[in-house]
């Protein structure tokens, strides 16, 4: 018998092989797409076709359910590691002019005396995202929101580039350096908390995460509490809210105090 005779119904191996395979496929398909969907009494289907589509994973939008109203806006900023990566000197210059109105809180050199974030040398992508979020309302603050609301895209980009360009200076009230607490270098794996340092410096930096060294302790504590309570919600995919909710108050204290005590010049430069 040659290979040509293999794929014919006269060949019993062909009949049996293909027959059994097709039978198994049919039985499992009927079970998976029809029987099992209807075996779930808590799910209602309009008919057999509806059940099949559901089991096949067809994206569906139920007609009689309207999407819940989004009470608060979510962040719409898309960041990549190339966002604002190569600013021109002109952009930095325009940013410097615009930044004069920020100086009252964030300091003339980008180092705050008022428990606002120090912006000198902060990653451009971070400032870019926060300004966009303040403008869109994804993040709100009584003082900051009115400043951001009238900024154009160009102004936001220029401000981000300007602050990223400034040298990192020591905090206004430097405190003695503290040892690394567990939450910063180990996180809490059993509670699903990654180490702070794996995104915010100390270990590694991830796009969109600010470095925190030398920032105001009161500010960082307040932000962690705002994430934990859900008052602040411009973190993408709830990553900070999930972490802050699982942190103990002691861990929040320890993380804020540790980062506040670190000199910012240890922060890795952007390449």
């Amino acid at each position: 018998m040659s290979t040509r005779d293999l794929f014919t119904l006269r060949n019993s191996h062909f009949r049996i092989g293909v027959g059994i395979t097709a039978a198994i496929l049919t039985v499992t398909a009927i079970a998976g797409f029809i029987v099992l969907p209807f075996a779930q009494p808590w799910v209602q289907f309009a008919g057999v076709w509806d059940a099949i589509c559901s089991a096949a994973g067809v994206p569906q939008r139920s007609a009689n359910v309207t999407a819940p109203e989004q009470a608060k806006r979510l962040s719409e900023v898309v960041l990549t590691s190339n966002t604002l990566s190569r600013p021109s000197q002109e952009a930095i210059g325009r940013g410097a002019t615009l930044a004069q109105r920020c100086a009252i809180c964030h300091g003339p050199t980008g180092v705050s005396r008022a428990d606002s974030p120090n912006l000198a040398g902060q990653y451009a992508a971070v400032i870019y995202k926060e300004l966009h979020d303040f403008r869109s309302g994804a993040r709100t603050n009584a003082v900051m929101s009115p400043f951001a609301v009238n900024l154009t895209d160009q102004e936001i980009a220029d401000l981000s580039n300007y602050y990223a360009y400034l040298p990192r200076l020591p905090a206004y009230h430097p405190t003695p350096q503290l040892p690394k607490p567990n939450i910063v270098i180990y996180g809490a794996p059993m509670r699903g908390i990654a180490p702070c340092g794996s995104c915010h410096g100390s270990l590694d930096n991830k796009t969109g995460s600010p470095w925190l060294e030398g920032q105001s302790e009161a500010y960082m504590k307040a932000q962690l509490q705002a994430f934990a309570s859900g008052e602040r919600r411009n973190d993408i995919s709830q990553q900070m809210r999930n972490i802050a909710r699982a942190m103990t108050p002691q861990e929040i204290e320890a993380a804020a105090a540790y980062y506040a005590s670190q000199p910012p010049d240890v922060v890795k430069a952007v390449d």
Partner: peptide, 17 residues
């Protein structure tokens, strides 16, 4: 979440084979 439950079931059944 991106794969339908029906396909998961078929794959599960074939895995048993």
């Amino acid at each position: 979440p991106q794969v339908g439950a029906g396909f998961k079931f078929i794959h599960s059944a074939f895995t048993a084979l």
